[in-house]
Amino acid sequence: MSSDAVTQFRKATEAGDIDTMMSTLAPDAELISPVSGRLVFRGQDDLRILLSAAYGSLANLRWTDEIGTGPRRVLLAAATIGPFHLTEALVLDLADDGRIRRFTPHLRPWLPLTLLAIKLGPRLARHPALLRRAGRH
């Protein structure tokens, strides 16, 4: 792994490169859903599906700022979904080896977040086991 998985993740998400995106994640990585707050997506297989669907739904994604240098970072982004502008603050917790262990995304405003949820719904519904696993605590 490169010394800076966060930089690689930023570039990969902007380019839509899911393989590089996945290489930045720790094996036990997890993402806490910004829509439900209760669903937690865990592991490489489930995160590949989720991240492909989520970042594949956005256009013009650009990370504008990175805050922090230690094991917790915050990335700020702007993107579009349909006709709407969306902003994201993504809190990343890094594993000891520097790879991303936990994502906590914060998306706004409400209308584009709702559109994102509508687009993700059918894509994730094709994977009912993923949703069952994400609903476990």
Results as ranks from 00 to 15, higher is better:
A15E: 14
F41K: 06
R62H: 10
T104K: 08
S36K: 14
L124E: 08
R10Y: 08
V74D: 12
P34M: 04
I49H: 06
G68A: 15
L113Y: 00
V74H: 11
R108F: 13
L94Y: 03
E30R: 04
A89L: 04
A78K: 12
L25T: 02
F9P: 05
I49K: 04
P27A: 06
I81F: 01
S2I: 15
A129M: 09
L107V: 05
V40A: 15
D46G: 03
S3A: 14
I49V: 15
R42C: 12
D46Q: 00
R10H: 07
A95F: 01
G68D: 15
D46Y: 02
L61C: 13
R72I: 12
D28V: 08
D93G: 03
S3C: 06
T24W: 04
R133K: 13
W63L: 13
S2N: 10
V91N: 00
P105D: 03
I81L: 00
M22G: 14
T20Q: 05
L130N: 08
I49S: 14
G68Q: 09
T87N: 12
R48M: 05
A29I: 01
L75E: 10
Q44H: 11
V35K: 03
M1P: 02
L86C: 00
K119E: 11
S36N: 05
P71E: 07
R62L: 09
D96S: 06
R108A: 14
E30K: 03
H85W: 09
F103E: 02
A117E: 10
P83L: 02
A54T: 09
R10F: 05
L31H: 01
L75D: 07
I81R: 01
R62E: 10
L124K: 09
V74A: 11
A79V: 02
R72K: 15
M21D: 10
A129L: 12
G135F: 09
L90V: 03
R123I: 13
D17L: 11
I32C: 10
P122I: 08
L61A: 07
P105T: 06
R48L: 01
L115A: 13
G70A: 14
P122R: 03
I100L: 01
A95N: 03
I118S: 03
M21I: 11
E14P: 13
F9E: 06
R62P: 01
P34E: 12
R48K: 04
E14T: 07
D65Q: 13
T87P: 06
Q8D: 13
L115S: 14
G135E: 12
L90K: 02
